[in-house]
Design a protein around this nucleic acid. Structure first.
Length: 564
DNA sequence: TTTATTGACTCAGAAACTTAGTA
DNA sequence: CTACTAAGTTTCTGAGTCAATAA
């Protein structure tokens, strides 16, 4: 047992007693284009000032990305670009359509090709340089332990890429300078040196926070942080704590469910809305849904911010009663589409909430996340809306593993069961991905392999038959050995075929579903570790190296009897 | 008071990069 | 053995949650 997870307790709110690091690594400064790579305006070459040229390269690099076809992106970019131009440039460059970035674009495409074509030795050298930077800036000392930092580089300047219909897409993300950066470390530590000729914005010694450095980003005017890697003790303990809160919910969830069901009949509209919203959060694993500033971000919603236009009520649909059809954009503008048969009282309440409202009106007009979370906190210490997602995800994994795992199965079969259990959670949490570009093709390739293997199996069967016949005739030892050999071969081929079939099934079922997010953020790793131990599946089949590092706390403490 | 803002943290999918498997 | 390519892994940074604080 590793003592790393059982060190002395700190005072409330204190996160560390010692923190020492080198500060962020600043991405390299802009390198001007070679003279023979030109920008053209209205068909004529135009030499740009350094700053203007740099921003032009940001756009040029994105030329074959869908972003640059969007009007908002183009307008935002052009506005911000013009702001950085010299007055002379401003007088010439007035129309983005007359700007020709193709030569610059090609320059960067060629450059990346050239990088790929580098010799082994040259690549090795580049890697060593990167490793050196990682070694120097990628670690810190926290309470005597050397810990890996998550993001130790400042974000390079570029064009803002929002998700979905983001009103700010294409805006210029400015370069972060040391003068923008606040350093956080311990007083008695070696304070990081700013780069030559520069100063930090501030150096502070705040041990109630976990970040090492921060700066304000210019698009949304929000803070960005340099923080520890998930493998660190600090993050690991927090993760553990998260699952412990979710496990406490398990003890009271039945009571909470009984209460919100009772509240569906409350005389207070506020309570009814709260109860219906909580039902959605619990049953459908919706996010809380904070309010967002209009026009500043993409129009997305969660539970509390649902609008009338996001649901449709069907008294009867496809043989089911009281069906609610959800259709809205959630986090990252991922679409949530679901038709759910709900309890009659929920249905009646929804009809009531929607009465005399416009499509753009809030469904839960008497509710917001802080009202909901204040209520949840009163029901259980540490309870908030997101805990339901964690709880329901983890309990679903545990139940699905129980239902799907067959101890007789091969490891490959068990892995398929695991993936299916994982998939059930990903579907619950609506974790999606865009179908990989090469999906169809690689699916076909796999099918080709399966067909070939089938052929081999058939041939193997014939050969075995032949060997058996021969043994029948001759009864000699050599022929007998041959039968055994053919049997073995056939068995191996059949196993290979089975494995390919499993792979194909898994792949097809996974087409648009992202398993990673739930695996990393919602599933108590101890459930997985217990399952691995119980069914003799090596942990490395489920968790890769990084994941094992992140879940080191769980690997240390979970045995096969662990119950979420 | 309630409401708005901010700060700090978790969670999110895409893209870049690396490795492994195979023709 | 080499050259593809597909799969796996890592990096990146935007988008949420939620509690504390300010107005």
């Amino acid at each position: 047992m590793c003592s790393r997870w059982e060190e002395e307790k700190k005072e409330d709110g204190v996160k560390w007693t010692q923190l020492e690091h080198r500060g962020p690594y600043f991405v390299p400064l802009y390198e001007p284009l070679p003279d023979d790579v030109q920008f053209y305006y209205d068909g004529k070459p135009l030499k740009l000032s350094l700053a203007t040229e740099e921003i032009a390269t940001f756009y040029a690099k994105m030329l074959d990305h869908e972003y640059t076809t969007k009007e908002i992106f183009q307008n935002n970019f052009f506005n911000d670009w013009r702001k950085e131009m010299t007055s002379k440039e401003q007088k010439i460059i007035k129309d983005l359509d007359k700007c020709d970035f193709r030569e610059i674009h090609k320059y960067f495409v060629d450059k990346s090709e050239a990088r790929k074509a580098l010799s082994k030795e040259e690549k090795q050298k580049l890697k060593e340089e990167a490793d050196k930077i990682q070694e120097e800036y990628g670690y810190c000392i926290l309470d005597g332990h050397r810990e890996k930092i998550g993001n130790f580089k400042t974000e390079p300047p570029g064009l803002f890429r929002g998700r979905g219909d983001h009103p700010k897409m294409g805006m210029l993300k400015k370069r972060i300078m040391p003068e923008d950066v606040v350093i956080n470390c311990s007083k008695d530590s070696k304070i990081p040196e700013p780069p030559e000729g520069h100063k930090w914005k501030e150096v502070r010694f705040d041990n109630t926070v976990t970040w090492l450095a921060s700066w304000t980003e210019n698009i949304q005017n929000t803070l960005k942080y340099i923080m520890l890697n998930p493998s660190s003790k600090l993050k690991g303990e927090k993760d553990w704590q998260k699952y412990e809160v979710a496990r406490r919910l398990k003890d009271v969830v039945h009571k909470i469910r009984a209460q919100y069901r009772a509240d569906w009949k409350s005389k207070e509209m506020k309570k009814r809305q709260r109860a219906v919203a909580l039902y959605f959060i619990d049953k459908l694993a919706l996010r809380a849904g904070n309010e967002k500033e209009e026009g500043e971000t993409a129009d997305t919603v969660g539970c509390c911010s649902l609008r009338v236009e996001h649901i449709k009520l069907h008294p009867r649909l496809d043989g089911q009663e009281h069906v609610v059809e959800f259709d809205f954009l959630g986090k990252d503008s991922i679409r949530y589409y679901n038709k759910v048969s709900v309890e009659k009282l929920v249905f009646k309440n929804l009809q009531l909430f929607m009465k005399n409202k416009d499509p753009a009106d809030d469904l839960f007009d008497r509710l917001n996340t802080s009202i909901l979370n204040r209520h949840l906190q009163s029901l259980m210490d540490g309870l908030s809306a997101k805990v339901f997602r964690t709880y329901n995800a983890s309990i679903t994994l545990q139940e699905q593993l129980k239902a799907l795992t067959n101890s007789e199965d091969s490891v490959a079969g068990k892995l398929l069961s695991y993936n299916r259990a994982n998939r059930a959670v990903a579907i619950l949490c609506n974790h999606q991905r865009s179908t990989p570009k090469t999906f169809e093709k690689s699916m076909q390739n796999l099918q080709t392999k399966i067909d070939a293997k089938k052929q081999q199996v058939e041939e193997g069967q014939q050969e075995l038959k032949k060997a058996e016949d021969e043994f029948e005739d001759t009864k000699d030892a050599k022929a007998e050995a041959n039968v055994e050999k053919k049997k073995k071969l056939l068995k191996r081929l059949e196993e290979q075929l089975a494995k390919l079939n499993v792979q194909a099934t898994d792949k097809e079922e996974n087409k648009q579903i992202a398993l990673g997010t739930s695996k990393l953020n919602y599933l108590d790793p101890r459930i997985t570790i217990a399952w691995c131990k119980k069914f003799g599946v090596p942990i490395e089949k489920i968790y890769n190296k990084t994941q094992r590092e992140k879940f080191a706390w769980a690997i240390d403490m979970a045995d096969e009897d662990f119950e979420f």
